[in-house]
């Protein structure tokens, strides 16, 4: 299982370096997004001003650079070792990557949580949820498995990795995709239920904003299209092995990941109205273009499979027995 994820994941990853540049560009528009960056707003809101030790421009920029820089460095070493191993066959590089991966998990768990809080949660600086980082993490993993499933189906349909990626691998990735569909719903419900039950005005405001001006339909849409439909559609064993079916569900999950982030961000702007059009489509198209160019470049330049990885044989003979 790890092997198959590595095969497809390392192609997916080059995108991050390109995306890192996107983070630097974001800093240019930073003042348009975060009210806490405005000194006048802070002067009028002492409760937000009390958070200035964390929510201030210089520490926000520093954290963004540390997080993105750290991820790029881990990418550089982990993927670099994997590529080096393709050429040299040195098994020690696998052991080096084990150590790096342990470090990455520790760094990732803290950095991604704070990254989500900085970029998304702080758009509404008076509101907080201690589970917010995990909510973003669950959505991220569900979407990542959708991408992995799509890449497996694409690579298999093109006959590019004969024997290395099979129906068995696809089945397992789709099981994880379903698992994280449930996990996302569990975290989303946990966040909602605790806020609803406690009924504290500073917390309920988040959901009140998302239950008016047309946002209620999108809130229910998330429940239906991000959880109920993917969950039911991925239950039968045979459907997990049906390429057309998995492709449709994976695309639905990817669309809903966008809707979810949109749902977290947009109610804070434009008087809380639902607004979508040319600008959103155009910007998303640009990122998709970068994504595809990065993917094509990596896949064209390097082997699609880490052929000299000492554990490759274990991944080839993988069978789902239930």
């Amino acid at each position: 299982m790890v092997g198959v994820c590595q095969k497809t994941g390392r192609s997916n990853d080059l995108l991050y370096s390109l995306d890192f540049l996107g983070g630097l560009v974001l800093l240019a528009g930073f003042k348009n997004l975060y009210t806490w960056a405005d000194p006048q707003f802070l002067a009028e809101n002492p409760l937000i001003a009390a958070k200035a030790g964390y929510l201030n421009t210089s520490s926000f920029i520093m954290r963004l650079i540390i997080f993105c820089g750290g991820w790029v460095l881990f990418k550089w070493f982990i993927i670099g070792n994997s590529i080096k191993q393709d050429q040299t066959g040195d098994a020690n590089l696998t052991h080096k990557n084990v150590g790096l991966s342990i470090g990455f998990i520790l760094f990732f768990s803290l950095s991604f949580s704070l990254f989500s809080i900085d970029l998304i949660m702080s758009l509404m600086p008076g509101w907080y949820s201690t589970i917010f980082g995990i909510y973003c993490f669950s959505g991220m993993f569900q979407a990542t498995f959708a991408v992995l499933a799509l890449m497996i189906i694409f690579l298999r349909s093109q006959g590019l990795v004969k024997g290395y990626l099979t129906e068995e691998h696809q089945h397992d990735v789709v099981k994880f995709m379903k698992g994280f569909t449930v996990f996302w719903a569990y975290i989303a419900f946990s966040q909602f239920m605790l806020i609803w039950y406690a009924n504290i005005p500073e917390e309920t405001e988040y959901y009140i904003m998302r239950s008016q001006n047309g946002w209620l339909g999108i809130s229910f849409g998330l429940l239906i299209f991000r959880f109920i439909i993917p969950f039911l559609a991925l239950l039968p064993r045979a459907w997990k092995r049906n390429n057309a079916h998995v492709t449709a569900v994976a695309f639905l999950i990817l669309i809903m990941q966008y809707v979810d982030i949109y749902w977290m961000v947009y109610p804070n702007f434009f008087d809380g109205q639902v607004i979508f059009g040319f600008w959103e489509i155009g910007i998303f198209a640009g990122f998709t273009g970068i994504f595809l160019l990065g993917l094509f470049t990596f896949m064209q330049k390097f082997s699609l499979v880490p052929l000299r990885d000492p554990r490759i044989a274990e991944t080839i003979s993988h069978h789902v027995t239930y």
Binding site: V2, C5, Q6, T8, G9, R10, S11, N12, D13, L15, Y16, D19, G22, G23, V25, L26, G29, N32, L33, W71, F74, K75, I78, I79, S82, N97, V98, L100, S101, F104, I105, F108, F112, F115, L119, I120, C136, M140, F141, A143, T144, V147, L148, Q257, Y258, I261, Y262, V265, Y266, F269, F270, W279, E280, G282, I283, F284, G286, F287, I290, F291
Partner: peptide
């Protein structure tokens, strides 16, 4: 605003890919 949504979306996909490379 749309840049933030797209940036976060693709950051998640890139980071998810890296997670599975270890």
């Amino acid at each position: 605003t749309s840049y933030l949504v797209a940036f976060f979306y693709f950051s998640c996909l890139g980071l998810g890919g890296l997670f599975f490379c270890g």
